[in-house]
């Protein structure tokens, strides 16, 4: 697996390269700013680019801008964005780059402290999956709502909804929950009935990102049920 790392802080950049190499990944290049990052992407076309979201010069959303540029130039390159602040808007923007965005991930920066999880995320993004950080989803699920519609879900259904939001496929959800795919589908239709939020199966099958975006929009809105 060939990895490019875009991070402006040299110490963290070096550490990331070391740690991922130790996990059997080939770090084919590192970059510290958007221009370098694009040159790296053009030159190496790595399987996955690991992108810090805050980069010079403005430290606002340069990482996302690189992701958008890379997706236009080299659609096959997986993009894993690391963000210090869990912002739904950033995740939504990342997942909306294409109609059916694949091979993208939005992780919190603190995930670098869970190297196994980070490496797993890199592999899944390389495999074309969509990933949204579980902490962001947990926070969204836990936020107080008036007449909270999530109260209508059973604990199992809540867990399924969270996994949907994290970008898992039905099979992935079944693996995570240790149950049959059929059970997951049953839960999903129950959730759809209760919340009327996940689009019909046909569209859901067409793109995981569609149902992630729908769930994020539902959880991230200030809707009061």
């Amino acid at each position: 697996m060939r990895i490019g790392i875009v991070e402006d802080q040299p110490l963290l950049r070096t550490a990331l390269a070391e740690v991922l190499s130790a996990r059997g990944m080939a770090v084919v290049g590192v970059a510290g700013d958007p221009a370098e990052a694009l040159r790296l992407g053009d030159r190496e076309r790595p399987d996955v680019m690991l992108l810090d979201i805050r980069l010079p010069p403005t430290f606002v959303d340069e990482g996302l801008q690189i992701a958008e540029a890379m997706r236009r130039r080299h659609p096959t390159v997986g993009l894993l964005v690391l963000s210090s602040h869990a912002e739904v808007a950033f995740a939504q923007r990342l997942l909306s780059m294409e109609e059916d965005t694949r091979g993208v991930g939005y992780l919190l920066k603190e995930r670098v402290g869970e190297v196994a999880e980070l490496a797993d995320a890199v592999r899944r993004v390389a495999g074309g999956e969509v990933i949204v950080d579980r902490c962001l989803i947990q926070r969204l699920m836990a936020r107080p709502r008036l007449g909270d519609p999530l109260d209508r879900l059973s604990p199992h259904e809540r867990r399924v909804l969270a996994l949907v939001a994290e970008g898992r496929s039905n099979l992935g959800i079944a693996e995570q929950m240790g149950c049959q795919v059929g059970t997951v589908e049953k839960h999903l239709s129950a959730i759809t009935g209760k919340l009327r939020l996940i689009p019909g199966d046909a569209r859901a099958r067409r793109g995981i990102n569609v149902r992630v975006l729908a769930t994020l929009a539902f959880l991230g809105g200030t809707g009061t049920g």
């Binding site: 991070e7 402006d8 802080q9 110490l11 963290l12 070096t14 550490a15 990331l16 740690v19 130790a22 805050r54 430290f59 210090s84 920066k109 603190e110 670098v112 402290g113 869970e114 190297v115």
Partner: peptide, 18 residues
Amino acid sequence: LHDGAQQQLYAVLMLLDT
């Protein structure tokens, strides 16, 4: 604070994790 100290602490966190 954010782009200096905090990023270095992330690096240390990562090394500790390994």
